[in-house]
Amino acid sequence: MEGLAGVALAIVLAGLGFWHLIVRRNLIWKLLGLNVAASGAILFLVALAHRPGARPPIVGLGPGPSVDPLPHALVLTAIVIDFATLALALVYVIFLTEHRHTQDVDRLERDEERGWPQP
C-alpha cells in the first residue's frame, strides 16, 4: 500500500516539476521545478524498493523480509549530486543576472537575436 502510494506520488511530483521546468520563464523558478522533479525521481526509486510489510535494510531491526537496499544506495549519492549541480547552476544564474541584468529566458533569446550586448 505504502509502496503504491509512493509510486503514484512520485509520478505526480515528477510531472509537476517537469511542467514548471519547461513552462516557467524565470531561471530560478525553473531550478525550483527541477528540484521537485528530481525529488520525484528519487522517491520513485525508493518506492520501488519497498515491499509490503518490509523492514528497513538494517540487520536485526524488526521481523519480516528486508526492503531492496540497492536503490537506497543509488539515491543516497544522487541526493548529494543534486545539491552540487544545483550550486553550479545557481552560479550560472548569478553570472547571467550580473552581466545581462535579466533572468528571463525569452528576454535572453531576444537579446541574442538582436545581437545585444556587443562585445
Binding site: P57, I58, V59, G60, S66, P69, L70, H72, A73, L74, L76, T77, V80, I81, A84, T85, A87, L88
Partner: peptide, 28 residues
Amino acid sequence: AKNVVATIVLGVRLWDTLFEILVYAMTM
C-alpha cells in the same frame, strides 16, 4: 556491519561512490 545500505555504498558499489565523490569535488 549491520546497515546493508552502507555495505553496498562502500563495498559492492565502491567505484560508483568514488566517482560520485570526484564529481562532487569537481563541481565545488
